[in-house]
Design a protein around this nucleic acid. Structure first.
Lengths: 225, 225
DNA sequence: TTTTTATAATAGTATTACTATCATTCAAAA
DNA sequence: TTTTGAATGATAGTAATACTATTATAAAAA
């Protein structure tokens, strides 16, 4: 039995549900490929349309603009990751072990999970590392937030924050530590590969080292106070 | 006696040195105002030209494109901040005290320092918080890095990393901890003001709390190992 | 005075980010 | 079976963006 993960998406993110048609799925699939290849700035609906073999207008029937598409992809990713996390930590009782497991999941390159053939999770993970912050680093954050576009991200951070609290009820900054872990799992990866002198892993470029760093950072903080 | 801080800029960042003319200084001044007001995405050289009262072509004589201008502004900011840090920690011997001082400087809103009347450091600080990451989160990071456009940022992180080492010679991740501190000083500020549930400071919105969080995070990590 | 240099004024191009219209297909409802 | 309607394809068109080029003019340096 293969359980099919269906991430429930905020309907305000799209005009027409991309998961409801072949064209829609192609939009998701090819946008991931294109953004991964050329970056979000160079990515346009025209290029995407050419890539798919449809027209620009066709894409616009699904997504209002490329920012909404990025919001969609990031929301999908965080939703998917939260599921992965809950799945892989399901049977773990010790919150410390749980938190370590989560750090590993956050900082490890994901392999494409064949469940959803129109979404390449591995590429999407890399997109989130380099482009993810651009989803909220805009003048419209407030509006986008009011429409709950960041809910999956905030939910995931809340999950992590709660486990942090379970590890140490007296710890004063569970939410900030959670967002720090999540952001740094990605940033240290980006730095390691692109600006290596900003990390201690420039030589090996091993994700395992990011994991060690985060574990060290987190558990020192939690055990102290 | 007023000492005039002159940040030495990488000449490959501009076509004509903006600090060498009135128009150039106006470009810096008004670009900071405009980017702060409307965000980097909505910012165009046309609007900037209208704002200054010159023409688009006039701007292009100074900067190749808006990405270079952003690189210039971020490089200026990090150079300026490194000077501020070295100035304000100059006479401090104890590395722990020094590091705390740096964390405070990183996380505190700067007041406009009248030295350079064409650069509003306070606005620039806010720009770095919301737009700074976009300087390196691009497909051209590698090229830009080869041209040393991120040197001021990397230098600052190196300074912080070295002080971390002074605090604890056995600590294994001084560079990564340094970049974490620098990034989080900004991200936690952005989150606090825009996505408050990702932090523990949503109610008070006090920078002092970010400082406490970072101090706690850093010194727990350093004293443990 | 001549020459250089910076700027202003104007024009023009390719691409981007859309919106609108109309014809076609194909499946479901009447 | 016909009708309807929803999704798509094809084509156009517009305003704004991201530039480049040309010429004239004014100010500063030689």
């Amino acid at each position: 039995m293969k359980l099919h993960v269906q991430i429930k998406m905020n309907e305000a993110l799209f005009l027409r549900d991309p998961e409801s048609s072949e064209l829609g799925k192609n939009i998701l699939k090819h946008s991931i490929q294109l953004i991964h290849k050329s970056g979000f700035e160079a990515f346009t609906f025209k290029k995407l349309a050419e890539d798919i073999g449809t027209t620009e207008a066709g894409i616009y029937r699904y997504f209002e603009n490329k920012h909404k598409l990025l919001l969609y992809l990031t929301a999908w990713y965080w939703g998917w990751l939260e599921f992965q996390i809950s799945f892989h930590t399901n049977n773990i009782d010790d919150p410390t072990v749980k938190l370590k497991r989560i750090i590993t999941l956050l900082a490890t390159a994901v392999e494409d999970d064949e469940q959803t053939n129109y979404i390449n999770e591995s590429l999407l993970h890399q997109i989130i590392i380099s482009e993810g912050s651009k989803a909220f680093l805009t003048k419209q954050v407030e509006e986008d937030n009011k429409q709950h576009f960041f809910k999956p991200y905030k939910d995931l951070c809340a999950v992590v924050g709660n486990i942090i609290l379970e590890c140490n009820l007296a710890y004063k900054y569970p939410r900030s530590l959670a967002s720090t872990i999540v952001e740094m799992a990605h940033f240290q990866n980006f730095f390691m590969n692109n600006l290596p002198s900003l990390t201690d892993f420039g030589n090996t470029k091993e994700e395992s080292e990011i994991i060690s760093f985060l574990n060290d950072l987190v558990f020192a903080g939690l055990n102290k106070s």
